[in-house]
Amino acid sequence: MLHRRLYQFLIIYSLGLSGLFLIKYTLNLSNYVIPGPANLWATCREVWLRYFFDTGDTLAVAIIGHITSTCLAIFVGIVGRQATWVGSFVKVAAYNVQAYPIVALAPIIFILLGDGFISRLLIAAMICYFPILLSVLGIMAEPVVDIEHFYRITGRMRWQLEIKIRAFENMNKLITVIAGSATLAMAGTIVAEFIAANAGIGYSIRIALYQSDLSKILIALFLIGLSLSVYQGLLEFSGYLAKKKWEVPKGGIV
């Protein structure tokens, strides 16, 4: 799972880089527009360690933001699954708040909370929160009629059991959404750093952009892609383990 994620990323990155080199040499462009392999290698040797730690910093914020937003989305999703007034209100609020582009809200967040860790975390969490919430709401509000019917008519249905049934029946969907939203958490953190923070790989990309240094940006993209592939691979593996643990063992004995 993890190794598949990694080699898929390496293939995509290599294809992208080859495409850039093809354009460079076809159009005879200078290293200023598109860096050549030697230039890229020299820059890599110069900045990789610093960028590695910057990416680690960003990934750490993204993971914390991702976990926070996942927990919050599951909590709100469970509350909002009910066909009550509160449930309906939570759903409407979730849909409406999603309509605000986070890039427009980000400057306000930075003015109020400063350009440190909290602002980055909040933006990362906000960007990945809503897609998870909407999926969780969708899953939790949809009854698994065949199974739930049995527990209802026998009077053994409790809310915890209802959630367990719905979560288990939609485990693949949940894992896909949570793993997919990791990309959003990372993107959110990078956007936040790019806009106003003073740390992380997004901040380094901004500096590189000031200096029109595409080779630095390409190295940053490589490290971002690599770290994200590892994180997503680990999430998928965790989901696989969780599903395996919940599954009925062979022979049917629980």
Binding site: L27, L29, S30, N31, Y32, V33, P35, N39, S212
Partner: peptide
């Protein structure tokens, strides 16, 4: 400077540090 090289513009405005950085990377 990048737009000049890519042919999107024929003239442009740049600061000296941009020009010097571009020249050091072979931009014409």
């Amino acid at each position: 400077i990048k737009e000049l090289e890519l042919g999107y513009a024929q003239f442009g405005v740049a600061s000296a540090d941009q020009v010097i950085r571009a020249r050091s990377k072979g931009a014409p």
